[in-house]
């Protein structure tokens, strides 16, 4: 199941489905990095609202995505981590350190708008 990537101006938005396999996550990682280059995007929002489980592999892949995109000079925001998923992540010891997070898509966009205004 491929993750759809939406282009909204200078921002790319990837929306996760509930049941992503490792292969899907790896595919998303390559697709996102390629599209950031292709569209010269300033930022990527990864919406994980629908994700039922965030295990160590998913969390590591998200961190890798964020770091790769940062090396391209763009910003990644993870939005929509569900409270139960957050609870399980902390128990498991996963922190997503160094990666920006926001409550939902709207908050994520607001965060990026503010950030880019400051940079102008």
């Amino acid at each position: 199941m491929e993750v759809p990537i939406l282009k909204q101006g200078q921002v790319l938005i990837a929306t996760f489905q509930a049941a992503l396999s490792d292969a899907d996550l790896n595919q998303l990682r390559s697709a996102l990095v390629q599209q950031v280059v292709r569209f010269r995007s300033r930022a990527v929002i990864v919406d994980v609202t629908a994700m039922d489980v965030m295990d160590s592999f998913a969390s590591r892949t998200l961190r890798e995505i964020a770091h790769m995109i940062r090396l391209r000079g763009a910003e990644t925001v993870i939005v929509g981590i569900q409270p139960e998923v957050a609870f399980a992540m902390v128990q498991l010891g996963l922190t997503l350190e160094g990666v920006a997070t926001a409550l939902d898509l709207e908050e994520g966009l607001a965060y990026l708008n503010q950030k880019f205004k400051i940079m102008k």
């Binding site: 039922d52 489980v53 295990d55 160590s56 399980a88 128990q91």
Partner: peptide
Amino acid sequence: SSGDATLIATAISELAR
């Protein structure tokens, strides 16, 4: 509860991986 079910599903994911 659905919170506990998430913990259990996460543990299964790690074990299966």
